[in-house]
Write a protein that binds this DNA or RNA. Structure first.
Lengths: 209, 209
DNA sequence: CCCGCGTTTGAACGACGGGTCAAGCCGACC
DNA sequence: GGTCGGCTTGACCCGTCGTTCAAACGCGGG
């Protein structure tokens, strides 16, 4: 925010950010180095000065963006006291387009690109597994907390419950981001909460908001 | 099976089949027209004789392959009398790599490519929505059948239950196809059955393999 | 003020691959 | 057995990038 040019403060990050933005709205396949350069406000040559190749840059950008999302979410969740509210917030943050702060294509669009890449690129596959397990771990932690405070009850392990919830969220988010006419963001939210309530053994709130 | 060359029987289909195979194991991004030509055993020029452009061919191939899968599954399900068994079979067919007849990369790999494309290509988006709703419709039909025969009981509509199940399957299948170390095909199967049993109000079989 | 080096530029190179096309092939039908 | 027309071929054209590179820039230290 100060007057200093961000300059080499971290060109690396600037470029990653620009890349993530471009990928988000053009798609990985339609992303050229020159697009990223333009978005970052630098020359194409500079991109390759900071990254060995386009491929590496793209991979880094994908994991970087997901990392950002996770950290933001994680920080926010940690401040919420009740496990039930934590879970509700996590769900809200997971529903594409529910919160106004995003456009139609949010992190989920990037996430799908990660999947495609991870199918053939072992490096990407490793990163994906790490990110995904961390994400499920986050959910499992919330569940463990809820079990400890007796907010939740279930005969399943937190890990199994987290997997179920995470998978449901993934599957629904895909429908929502695709703008399936039968699956609106609000519908997704309701379904997630409902399944969570059933699996974790708590009652749904009488509807707030 | 007869001695006649399949020739122009349906070159169109031959090419679509070849395309689907190539996309499955190289990925959409790495699929060249010449690859498809080679796989189909014809010259590159011929591909464009039958299809207006590479793009159209790829789109058609993706929906074609998914269509094939659906029809095969649908036909098989129809012959099973019990709704519970129908559902179990549907789940088995949905788990990547569970049945021996497939390699690691099966229809799911294509399906992810469909998602990526559908995000920006309206034509593909329309096709995807149709295919997905048909798939969920199939599940809903099974559930309706089970409710009619009193095998299932639930306060939710068949459509909502189908959405939950389909989404769970999507989410889990992604993990499985990515070879996530925590989600094996068998694990996915167990989780799907378990959730289905809970949501639909029936008891799991005592394990029959 | 000047040097030196990390940064930045953008023109140029070269590979790659989609799409075109003129020419052959071949079976059907007369 | 000739001719017509749909199939098929593969060489070629041409635009589009990823990547390279020599030159310029500009800041910090001497």
């Amino acid at each position: 925010m100060s007057g200093t040019t961000p300059k080499s403060k971290d060109r690396h990050q600037e470029i990653l950010d620009a890349a993530a933005r471009v990928i988000t709205d053009r798609g990985l396949a339609e992303t050229r180095i020159s697009d990223i350069a333009e978005e970052a406000g630098v020359s194409p040559g500079l991109i390759l000065y900071y990254f060995d190749s386009k491929d590496r840059l793209l991979s880094e950008a994908l994991t970087y963006a997901n990392d950002q999302f996770y950290l933001r979410m994680s920080r926010e969740i940690r401040r919420i006291p009740s496990a039930r509210d934590q879970l509700a917030r996590l769900i809200d943050l997971s529903v594409p387009g529910l919160l106004p702060e995003y456009g139609r294509l949010d992190e989920w669009a990037l996430w799908i690109e990660v999947w495609v890449r991870a199918l053939r690129d072992p490096e990407m596959a490793k990163d994906r597994e790490f990110l995904d397990q961390r994400w499920r771990g986050q959910i499992a932690d919330i569940i463990r907390g809820g079990q400890a405070s007796a907010e939740f009850s279930s005969e399943q392990t937190p890990e199994e419950l987290a997997l179920r919830l995470a998978s449901l969220i993934d599957g629904l988010a895909i429908q929502v981001i695709m703008e399936d006419s039968q699956v609106t963001p609000e519908h997704m939210r309701g379904t997630c909460i409902d399944v969570a309530a059933r699996e974790l053994g708590f009652e749904r709130e009488p509807v707030s908001t």
